[in-house]
Amino acid sequence: NKFNKEMRNAYWEIALLPNLNNQQKRAFIRSLYDDPSQSANLLAEAKKLNDAQA
C-alpha cells in the first residue's frame, strides 16, 4: 500500500528531526495516523518547523 510506505517513511523522518521536541514529534505522528494520505504534507510542515527552530 502506497500510503503505508509513505507514512512509514514520514514517521521515521519526523522522529529523527533534531530540532523538534517530543511533543511536536508526537503531534505530527498522531496526524500521520489520523490521515496517512497527508504524509508528504505533514513531513514538509515538520521539516519547515525543524528548520525554523534550528
Rank of each mutant, 00 (worst) to 15 (best):
L20P: 00
L16M: 13
S31V: 09
A46N: 00
N9L: 15
N41P: 11
L20T: 00
A40Y: 12
K48V: 06
M7K: 02
Q38H: 09
Y11F: 10
L16W: 13
F3V: 13
Q53G: 06
L20C: 01
A10C: 02
N4L: 08
L17Q: 04
Y11W: 04
R30M: 10
N9G: 05
P36R: 04
R30I: 05
F28H: 01
A10R: 05
Q23H: 10
L49H: 05
W12T: 10
L43T: 09
A54T: 15
D34F: 13
D35T: 13
N19M: 12
E6A: 05
N22E: 12
E13T: 14
N1V: 07
N21G: 08
L43G: 02
K2L: 08
E6R: 02
N19T: 06
D35N: 12
N50M: 01
A44C: 04
N50V: 01
A10Y: 06
A15H: 15
F28C: 01
R26V: 04
R8E: 14
Y11V: 14
I29G: 03
Y33Q: 04
S37W: 09
P36M: 05
Q38L: 08
A52Q: 14
L20A: 00
A40I: 09
E13A: 15
R26I: 08
F3D: 14
Q24P: 00
A44K: 14
A40T: 08
Y33P: 01
E6D: 06
S31F: 14
I29C: 03
P36V: 07
A10M: 07
N4M: 05
E45V: 13
S31G: 07
R8C: 15
L49E: 04
N1Q: 06
N9E: 11
L32H: 01
Q23W: 15
L49I: 10
E6M: 08
D35A: 12
N19K: 10
L17V: 00
A46V: 03
N21P: 04
S37M: 13
A27D: 04
L16N: 14
L16V: 08
L32F: 02
P36K: 04
R26N: 06
L32P: 00
E6I: 06
R26P: 00
K25D: 00
L49W: 07
Y11A: 12
N41D: 07
S31P: 02
N19Y: 14
M7C: 02
A10H: 03
S39R: 15
D51Q: 11
Q24D: 03
Q24K: 03
I29E: 02
E13H: 15
A27Q: 06
A44M: 13
A15Q: 14
L32C: 01
F28A: 02
S39A: 10
S31K: 11
S39V: 11
L16R: 15
L17H: 07
E6S: 03
A27L: 07
E13L: 15
A15I: 15
A44Q: 12
